[in-house]
Design a protein around this nucleic acid. Structure first.
Lengths: 107, 107
DNA sequence: ATACTCCTGTAGTTAAACTAAAGAAGCCAA
DNA sequence: TTGGCTTCTTTAGTTTAACTACAGGAGTAT
């Protein structure tokens, strides 16, 4: 049974989602990833929420409680300045990796 | 301290290397990855050899002892039929992932 | 001899992603 | 008004890939 997400890419996906959408709750992030991947990235909550906690502890995101579009209590996460820096770094690393893999696969 | 390789891509890299080069020993695989990545993928032996063991146990590769180009004893690994199938699958998954990430990053 | 490169191996650790569960709270239909 | 559905969060415990940090044999060159 394969992992849902490619390990090492989850942080990038979450950070980029917050960058694009602005402050979003966990559930919304998960939905966004399902939508943008046509249902492929159906993320476990058991992966998402610990990841959000991790990133908040590292100072890449911050959180506040609020009320969702559906009138539920929800925890909204937002990129911090450090998170924006981190996102940039991760995108660069990702692109480097893609280049290497492309070279390898087409060899 | 970041990981040397993007987790989840090591098997693909090893399988593809064997596909391209034919039977190769562990040290040779590591060198190949250094070369094709311009020194970026400087793989730990502590990652490589356990990975080779894993893949042999799963039947994706087989091994035989031989003598290297430098006249040393070396263990040569080769793709099996299952390994070739697995490689195909992994490449497809990788390409799918690249597509999703591209869509995400460019959104 | 001794130092260097080539080549393999493994014990133990870390941490990311997982399974599996629980639960609160608003919405809606019977 | 009850019971089910959806939304949204949380956390305990497991797995496993990749890591650090070793150790060691064997050929080659000085």
């Amino acid at each position: 049974m394969p992992r849902e997400v490619l390990p090492g890419t989850l942080d990038l996906m979450v950070l980029k989602t917050l960058d694009t959408l602005g402050p979003t709750h966990g559930y919304g992030i998960a939905q966004r990833l399902i939508q943008i991947s046509d249902g492929i990235l159906d993320l476990n909550q058991g992966s998402l929420y610990p990841a959000l906690l991790r990133m908040e502890q590292r100072g890449w995101i911050s959180s506040d409680y609020g009320i969702s579009e559906n009138n539920r209590k929800a925890r909204y996460y937002a990129l911090t300045a450090d998170g924006r820096k981190r996102l940039k770094t991760e995108i660069e690393q990702w692109k480097g990796m893609v280049q290497i893999m492309t070279r390898l696969i087409e060899a």
